[in-house]
Design a protein around this nucleic acid. Structure first.
Lengths: 153, 153
DNA sequence: GTACATGCAAAACATTTGCATCCGA
DNA sequence: TCGGATGCAAATGTTTTGCATGTAC
């Protein structure tokens, strides 16, 4: 399991880019909140507590960098914000994308892992001659709490 | 197989809303291009050919209405535009969501249908106590043409 | 005639960019 | 020192909204 922070520093040096306080703080913010799906604005607010002078533009630029380096994943819940979460890696460098359950009532996002998608991908690959390299699965519905809450209706 | 146009008119009347030329033209535009994933701007350009005085705001307002009435589906390809397509209904009123294959090279979007998701949904429903009502699946990769084109590299 | 719809322009919104200054290597 | 990084403000581009006018019913 590679240390994200060390990897980030290594990748930056490799590209002749600089290791700055801001960049590290932004990565830490995302590492500390592995299942929160933060928006740029939210990341900005978090980092400002440690470094009040940081600018929102720096957050956007760093997010883009982290995304290109495959250290974070984008997530679009269709609410007008792009959200980000730290990448979930396996022992190798392979990214294990998990999937998202989105509650239509409370808006909470739950994650789950399932290997069935791989079977599906193989099938599509064969039948449609389309080479799949990434996927995104979102299931919308009602979480346990909201089902309970609305049972009487 | 219900007629979208008649259904739209019926639903409008039911809600005390009015059947206008603009609303019908926008629905027709989407009906005529069932697999094109149009942006608001593109719909606007199409409708302007029939009705040059239409405003972009009307397109946005109608799209929102059609979306609320479940006559069209939203699709976000992450390119900064929200896209829309006519809903694909079965014999009953059930919406048969198809899935999308997005080529990372040429950007073309292909659709496919697969029932495997239902098995997945049942499993999630049982194991996580989450009642699923809708889903969205996007697979990213390379289409046949682009695979061929880039074979030499 | 009375809502509701429309078109226009202005506003709102997230995100990006230009540029002078700053700072890591 | 020097090229990349930052912060700020301005710009961008999509989508929304306010309001006077138009139109379906």
């Amino acid at each position: 399991m590679p240390d994200n922070q060390e990897r980030f520093k290594m990748l930056l040096r490799q590209k002749g880019l600089k290791v700055t306080t801001q960049r590290i703080l932004i990565l830490e913010t995302l590492e500390d909140r592995p299942d929160e799906h933060l928006t740029a604005e939210e990341i900005y607010e978090c980092v400002k507590q440690e470094n009040p002078d940081i600018g929102l533009a720096t957050v956007y630029r760093t997010i883009q960098l982290l995304s290109e380096l495959n250290l974070i994943d984008k997530l679009n819940l269709g609410d007008g914000y792009v959200r980000y979460e730290i990448g979930h890696h396996g022992d190798d460098a392979t990214i294990h994308h998990h999937h998202h359950l989105i509650c239509l009532d409370c808006g909470n996002v739950f994650t789950f892992q399932d290997d069935m998608l791989e079977t599906l991908e193989t099938r599509i690959q064969d039948s449609m001659d389309f080479k799949i390299v990434d996927h995104e699965v979102k299931l919308y519905g009602y979480c346990r709490e909201c089902q309970k809450k609305n049972q009487g209706e």
